[in-house]
Amino acid sequence: MMTHASNATPPAAGAAPTDTHEHSGESYPALVWRRFRRSRLALVGLAMLLLLVMLSVFAPFFAPVDPTARNSANSYGPPQTLSWYSEEEGFSLRPFVHPYEESFDPVTYQPILEPDTGERIYVTFFARGWEYTWLGISLSRHLIQLEDGSPLHLLGSDALGRDLFSRILFGSRLTLLLGVLVVAVSVTVGTLVGITSGYFGGRKDNLIQRITELFLAFPELPLFLALIAILPQAAQASTLFLLMVGILSILKWAQLAREVRGKALSLAQLDYVKAAIACGASDKRIILRHILPNVMSHVIVVATILIPNVILAESFLSFLGVGIQAPLISLGQLLNAAADFQAVGAYPWLLSPVLFILLAVLAFNAIGDGLRDAIDPYGKVR
Rank of each mutant, 00 (worst) to 15 (best):
M2P: 14
H4N: 13
S6Q: 14
A8R: 14
A12Y: 06
A15Q: 13
A16M: 10
P17T: 02
E22G: 05
E22I: 05
H23T: 05
A30E: 14
V32G: 10
R38T: 07
L41C: 09
L41D: 07
L41V: 14
A42Q: 13
L46H: 08
L50F: 13
M54A: 15
P60F: 07
F62S: 03
F62T: 05
F62E: 07
A63V: 09
P64H: 12
T68R: 04
R70D: 07
S75F: 00
Q80E: 13
Q80D: 01
S86K: 01
G90P: 01
F96H: 09
F96R: 08
V97P: 05
H98I: 05
P99L: 05
E101N: 09
E101A: 06
D105K: 10
P106M: 04
V107M: 09
Y109T: 02
Q110V: 08
I112W: 09
L113R: 12
E114Q: 15
P115S: 12
R120Y: 05
R120M: 04
Y122C: 06
F126R: 11
F126D: 14
A127G: 15
R128T: 09
W130Y: 14
T133K: 11
S140E: 13
P151M: 06
L152D: 04
H153Y: 15
D158F: 10
L160Y: 05
R162C: 02
R162T: 08
L164H: 02
V180G: 10
V187K: 09
T188G: 12
V189P: 05
T191P: 00
G194S: 06
S197I: 02
F200K: 04
G201V: 03
D205A: 10
L207W: 11
I208N: 00
Q209Y: 07
L214R: 02
P219L: 12
L221M: 14
P222S: 11
L223H: 07
F224Y: 15
L225C: 06
A226I: 05
L227I: 03
L227Y: 02
L231W: 03
L231Q: 12
Q233V: 04
A234F: 13
A237N: 03
L240C: 03
L243H: 00
V245P: 06
V245I: 15
I247N: 13
L248N: 11
L248S: 04
L248W: 10
L251R: 08
K252I: 00
K252G: 13
A254C: 12
Q255I: 10
K263L: 15
D271R: 11
G280R: 13
A281S: 15
A281Y: 13
K284Y: 09
I287T: 01
I287M: 14
L288D: 04
H290R: 12
I291S: 06
I291G: 02
P293C: 11
V299P: 03
I300E: 03
A303E: 09
T304P: 03
I305F: 15
I307C: 03
P308S: 08
I311G: 01
L312F: 11
S315V: 08
L320C: 10
I324H: 03
I324Y: 00
A326K: 01
P327N: 12
L328R: 01
I329E: 00
L334W: 01
L334K: 02
A346P: 00
A346K: 07
Y347G: 01
P348C: 02
L351R: 00
V354F: 11
L355S: 14
I357A: 00
L359R: 01
V361A: 13
L362A: 12
A363P: 04
I367H: 12
I375N: 04
